[in-house]
Amino acid sequence: MCRAAAGAMRQKGLPVAFVTAAALVHEMMEARDEKRLLQLQRKLAKVNLLIIDDLGFVPQSKTGAELLFELISQRYERGSTLITSNLPFEEWTETFGTGRLTGALLDRLTHHLNILEMNGESYRLNQSRARLAAADK
């Protein structure tokens, strides 16, 4: 679904970025260490849609959580940010480390928010089962 949204926007010529939360934090930490964080932040601020996939899959370090918060704060009311996560909001504190940072992040994210809650079996698991069933025939 996220990739489809990104593809549709790209077809219209709009800049889109799709990245996992872990890769994004890693890239921001590298950019900070190499003194090019501001350049990366400006680049990410220019995209119409930033898709951050699998937020909460990997707990963030204090620095990583702060960098992610800073990026989301910079994009707040300036560009669309789509975040996917398998965690309910109540469990985000485990990812970001502190209730204060998590609260501030959720405050920005939920101000103009549409939540799509999808419960059900994994489409990847369903595809694997279908492949196995086809191979057994």
Results as ranks from 00 to 15, higher is better:
Leu101Lys: 11
His111Cys: 02
Gln60Ala: 11
Asp33His: 02
Ala130Val: 02
Cys2Thr: 11
Ala134Val: 05
Arg129Asp: 14
Ser73Lys: 10
Glu117Cys: 12
Ile51Tyr: 14
Lys43Leu: 12
Ile51Asp: 13
Pro59Leu: 12
Ala130Trp: 03
Leu82Cys: 07
Leu132Ile: 15
Gln74Trp: 05
Ser122Tyr: 01
Arg131Leu: 10
Glu121Gly: 07
Ala104Glu: 06
Glu117Trp: 10
Leu55Arg: 14
Arg129Gln: 15
Gln11Ile: 00
Leu40Thr: 09
Ala135Arg: 13
Ala22Cys: 04
Phe96Tyr: 07
Thr20Gly: 07
Ile115Gln: 13
Met29Ala: 09
Trp92Gln: 00
Glu30His: 01
Val16Met: 02
Leu132Met: 15
Lys46Ser: 05
Tyr123Ser: 03
Leu101Met: 11
Ile83Ala: 10
Leu113Ile: 05
Leu113Tyr: 03
Glu91Lys: 15
Ser61Gln: 13
Lys43Gln: 14
Ser85Phe: 05
Arg78His: 12
Thr102Pro: 04
Leu87Asp: 09
Gln127Thr: 05
Leu49Pro: 08
Glu90Met: 06
Leu37Cys: 03
Val47Thr: 04
Gly13Cys: 03
Asn48Met: 15
Ile115Tyr: 09
Leu116Ser: 07
Leu14Arg: 08
Lys12Phe: 08
Glu30Asn: 03
Leu132Pro: 15
Leu82Ser: 10
Arg129Gly: 11
Ile115His: 06
Ala134Gly: 06
Leu50His: 14
Ala133Arg: 14
Gly79Ala: 14
Arg3Leu: 09
Gly103Glu: 04
His26Trp: 01
Gln41Met: 04
Ser80Val: 03
Asn48Asp: 14
Met1Tyr: 14
Arg100Ser: 13
Thr98Gln: 08
Ser73Phe: 08
Thr93His: 07
Phe96Asn: 05
Thr20Arg: 07
Gln11Val: 02
Arg32Pro: 12
Ala65Arg: 00
Asp136Tyr: 07
Ser73His: 02
Leu87Cys: 08
Arg42Trp: 01
Phe69Leu: 05
His26Gln: 04
Gly13Gln: 04
Arg78Asp: 07
Leu38His: 00
Ala135Pro: 07
Glu30Gly: 04
Met28Asp: 06
Ile52Tyr: 13
Glu94Trp: 12
Ser128Leu: 15
Gly103Arg: 00
Arg78Lys: 15
Thr84His: 11
Ala23Gly: 05
Leu50Asp: 15
Leu37Trp: 01
Asp53Arg: 04
Asn86Thr: 10
Ala135Met: 13
Tyr76Gln: 14
Gly64Met: 11
Gly13Asn: 05
Glu90Leu: 01
Trp92Arg: 01
Arg108Met: 06
Met28Lys: 00
Gly120His: 03
His26Glu: 02
Val58Ser: 02
His111Tyr: 00
Lys46Thr: 09
His112Gln: 15
Arg10Met: 12
Gln127Ser: 07
Gly7Leu: 12
Val47Lys: 02
Arg10Asn: 09
Glu66Arg: 00
Asp33Trp: 00
Phe96Trp: 08
Arg36Val: 01
Glu77Arg: 10
Ala4Lys: 15
Leu113Val: 03
Thr110Asp: 04
Glu117Met: 14
Trp92Cys: 01
Gly56Glu: 09
Ala65Gly: 07
Lys43Pro: 12
Leu71Asn: 13
Ser128Gly: 15
Val19Met: 06
Leu116Arg: 04
Lys43Phe: 07
His111Glu: 02
Ala134Phe: 04
Ser80Leu: 04
Phe69Met: 00
Ile115Asp: 08
